[in-house]
């Protein structure tokens, strides 16, 4: 009996408040929004959620290290542009080059943040702008169409058995993120760095190397999202989905990932992504304009961060005592990058 109460209590303590929000959202929309629960709409939500899911997985990696990446939308746009420009080499090499461009953006972010200790916010704000400019320059500001091709459309339109390809990719993304977080050394080190970078260094962890790898890994998730999105729009667009990175940060925050690092679960990322996608879809079905959807996502993000604060700031040394001040999220000297 007490055991059952205990595990219920533990579940309640661990479950992000967003889970309840998601349940209420789904129940409400099933009743009030016509066609919300239809098979067509559910699959539509799934395919829309897939891109955000993969980007949010990448965002989760860097958020856990106490970082963040604003440049992801620019990186996805760069991927679409590079892929379409290189399409003459064949579809697979073109996508590979596009993905390589995204990884390069991740490597630049990682290098600046880990090696030169520039705060993640400033670094990725810089790459956000510069990479956007680069994409525009590559196509002289005009979106370029890819030649019609069934193979090019497959990542967005194809299916694996009963599931559409984007959903399969997103599910693979979640599994990979879960394995990274729970079963790999690098994943553990990300959590430890996010929890206390100074202690991570003193414990002999290679903080710079792990931080660098976090941004490259995040870029790999972004490249997978870019694959779906490039295929979907079938063109190279420098202005592709400009709010993607912010929505991903919002999804992580809603899903209970601590933006000050060291805390978060894959289940939270999934819930956060679904809350963002389902609420947008529901508002669409209720004929609310997409501008209002932005307001809703914004409010949800701030509310979830507030909610996390109200349920206790777990995971810091501030249990009733003032702390010496936040340890700055710097990576110290004396360590080589790979």
């Amino acid at each position: 009996m007490t055991h059952a109460v205990d595990s219920l209590r533990r579940f309640r303590a661990d479950a992000p408040p967003a889970l309840y929000l998601l349940v209420v959202l789904v129940a409400g929309l099933t009743i009030f929004a016509p066609g919300f629960a239809s098979a067509h709409n559910v699959s539509n939500v799934g395919r829309t959620a897939a891109v955000l899911a993969l980007v949010a997985c990448g965002q989760a990696v860097v958020i856990v290290t106490r970082g963040l990446d604003l440049s992801m939308a620019s990186a996805v746009a760069l991927m679409s542009v590079v892929t379409v420009l290189e399409i003459d080499r064949g579809i697979i090499p073109a996508f590979a080059l596009g993905a390589l461009a995204v990884l390069a953006v991740g490597a630049v972010n990682g290098l600046l943040i880990a090696r030169f200790e520039i705060p993640p916010f400033l670094t990725t704000l810089g790459t956000l702008t510069a990479v956007h400019g680069l994409s525009s320059v590559l196509v002289a500001g005009i979106p370029v169409e890819a030649p019609p091709s069934g193979a090019f459309s497959w990542p967005s339109n194809g299916s694996v058995g009963p599931l559409s390809a984007p959903i399969v990719l997103a599910l693979v993304g979640f599994v990979v993120l879960g394995v990274l977080f729970r079963r790999t050394t690098i994943g553990r080190i990300w959590f430890l760095i996010g929890s206390n970078p100074e202690a991570a260094r003193a414990a002999g962890l290679r903080v710079r190397r792990a931080t660098f790898l976090a941004y490259v890994t995040a870029a790999a998730f972004v490249a997978a999202a870019g694959l779906i999105l490039t295929s979907r729009v079938h063109s190279g667009q420098p202005d592709l989905d400009p709010t993607l990175a912010f929505e991903a940060i919002a999804a992580c925050a809603i899903g209970g990932l601590s933006l000050s690092g060291g805390r978060g679960r894959v289940s939270g990322v999934i819930i956060g992504v679904l809350v963002v996608t389902v609420s947008a879809n529901g508002l669409l079905l209720l004929n609310v304009s997409s501008d209002v959807q932005l307001i809703v996502v914004g409010v949800l993000t701030v509310a979830s961060v507030l909610g996390a604060g109200a349920t206790g700031r777990r995971g810091r040394w501030s249990v009733g005592r003032p702390s010496v001040g936040q340890t700055p999220a710097t990576t110290p000297a004396g360590e080589k990058l790979p």
Binding site: R188, A199, G315
Partner: peptide, 24 residues
């Protein structure tokens, strides 16, 4: 607290932090 431990992480993960390279 400032230089040694990882708040929000389990006792186990705090204790094993310097052995990860060996446990991997």
């Amino acid at each position: 607290d400032r230089d040694g431990l990882f708040p929000g992480q389990s006792v186990l993960h705090n204790a094993s932090a310097s052995s990860l390279w060996r446990l991997a």
